Structures are given as C-alpha cells and as structure tokens.
Amino acid sequence: MSTVINKPRLTTSAMIASIATEGQRTMAAPFGHALVAEAAKRPNIVGMTADLSKYTDLHIFANEYPQRHFQMGMAEQLLMGAAGGMAKEGFIPFATTYAVFATRRAYDFIHQVIAEENLNVKICAALPGLTTGYGPSHQATEDIALMRGIPGLTIVDPCDALDTEQAVAAIAAHDGPVYMRLLRGKVPLVLDEYDYQFELGKAKLLRDGRDVLIISSGIMTMRALEAAQVLGDGAADVAVLHVPTIKPLDEETIVEACRRSGRLVIVAENHSCVGGLGEAVATALMRARVQPEFRQIALPDQFLAAGALPTLHDRYGISTSSLVGSIKQWLA
C-alpha cells in the first residue's frame, strides 16, 4: 500500500491586486464604502457588474442596497448597454468590471451607447495597468490609451484609498460619462499626509523640489513620493505633481510647473509608454513651447509576463527602487 504525503500547497501572488507593501497603512475597500455613503445621499445611484461584485468591492454596496444592485453575468457588452439604458431613465449607474474587459471587450458599447449620447455612466474598472500578475489577458496596460480617444469621456486614475474615496463623490456629482481606474481590496493610504483634496480636472503639487519634477498618476504617485523620500537623503530634491484626472488634463498647472528651469521632468505612469499620461504631457509641453529635459517611466510597448507583482514591478521599472535607480542614473 502506498503512503500519501500531504505536502503544503504552494501559493503564488500572481493574482493579488493589492500593491501595499508590508507594514504600509491601508484602507479596506474604499470604493465600496464610498459608494455606499454616496448612495445614501443619491437614491438614483445603482451598482452594476459583470459577475465581479466581490472582486471590484461592489459587494459592499450590494449588501447595503440589494434592490439597487444588478448582476449582469459574464457579459460586459450587456453591462455597458444596460448602464446606458439606466442612465437614460435618470439613474446614475456605477458599472464595475476588470479594466481589460471594460476597455477591450466593451469598447464599442462605451463609445456608441454611452459616450456618444453623453450618458451619466460611471465605469469603475479594477486591475488597471500592472496590478495583477495574470499576464496579458488581465493586465490593462493600454486602457488609458483606448479611453483617451473617446470624445467627452472623463478619465480618473486615483493614487490611494483617500483619492479613491474622494473621487467617488466627485464623479457622482459630475454630469457625464467617466472611466475610473479602480484600486480594490486593501488599498494603501498615503495622501492624507499631504493635506490632499481631490478635485476633478485638477493636478495637485504634493511636494516641491529644485532638482527633479515627477508628474505622476495612480499608484505611481505613491511610488514617486517614496522615491522622493529616499532621494531626499542628499541625492536629489524631488517635487511630485499628482495628476489624478488624465482627461481633461490640467495642462495649465502642468505647463507652469515645467517652466521652472534647471529641473529634470519625469512622467511616471502605470500604463504603456504609448498613449498615456506621458504622451499627453509631452504634447501639452510642445504646444506651449516649453522644453525641459524630459524622461518617461512607463510600461514597455509589449505584452508583459505573468508572475508575482513585486518581481514584475522591478522587471518593468515601476517599483520604488527602480524609480530611484532611474533618477540617479539620469542625474549622474
């Protein structure tokens, strides 16, 4: 008779969406809780998803308002079409799914059903950029590039839990379609230390510095702040300009910050180097005839590997240590 030995099951962090480091302060499900709070004030808010309530934190809303929660099944085109119909009836639909499914699979429905008619739909999409290790099928590395091309669509890329929480209220108050990159689960909390207040369409200078200006969005603002602290030990004085709204872009604030001479300007984003914040900023600077020394930190124009997030962030240059290394090299 053979003996069966129960070995411990090996696990992988490939699908873990949290980008919090060990010991970092976090807030659980800021999107879900913020939506519940906003729904208490706005009875026309409804929550909709394509079989992903638990994985977009919409289940918190569903538990609080079961009659206002709509499960559309694995049919993202139907989700967007139905959200458009809800908006036409006076509701404010918050439609959640993964960013790859919202932008790639349902693009035509967002373009034609929602955006062309300027309907009041809020698309909140989890796993943006490189926030999952499941490979190209789940890594929405080009979502902003796709969405930037849709006329009239507002695009929001929050940095942390506070940004997400405040953005929910702001986009609910905004009349028109919105695409928001969604941070889910245990989300880092960093911006409360910088007297921060989200304003739709506004970039915010979180810290000033004479040597380097990092213009960033999403989780890269958190990385930029961490890098600034590391480099502040004699290596470089780093300013961080957070751009939570990608479209419409706060070109006035960005251009004015880049007029200051003698600073290296770096755009850092958790997105492909094609079609995202970096190219939007570069275009704005060219139009304004402002020409600082310019660098870009972004994901490469390629299909990315699968694996554990810390390893992938190092490999593709968006970890804090990679950011610090790149800045030191450029300043040398």
Rank of each mutant, 00 (worst) to 15 (best):
E64T: 15
D195R: 12
A34G: 04
G275M: 15
E256K: 14
I60V: 14
G278Q: 02
T311F: 02
T21A: 09
P292M: 13
M74T: 14
V243F: 08
I45A: 10
S261V: 03
L213G: 04
E193H: 13
V156M: 13
G23V: 12
L191M: 03
D192L: 01
G81F: 10
G73R: 01
I219T: 15
M1F: 13
V243C: 15
N118P: 06
S216T: 01
H242P: 10
D208T: 10
V121F: 09
V265F: 05
V113M: 07
D208Y: 02
M86T: 00
L10P: 02
L58F: 00
L191Y: 02
F61A: 11
L205M: 14
E165M: 09
T49V: 13
Y98R: 14
A17G: 15
R148M: 06
A62E: 15
Y179F: 14
Y65W: 00
F294W: 00
H313V: 09
V121Y: 08
P244S: 09
A268G: 15
C159S: 14
Q197H: 14
A224S: 14
M147T: 06
R207V: 07
S261M: 12
S319Y: 06
F303A: 13
I171Y: 01
E256Y: 01
P310V: 00
A306L: 08
A228R: 06
E22N: 06
P177Y: 09
Q166E: 07
D192K: 04
A161C: 08
E165R: 11
A268T: 06
S53R: 11
E269Q: 15
D157Q: 03
E251M: 07
E252W: 02
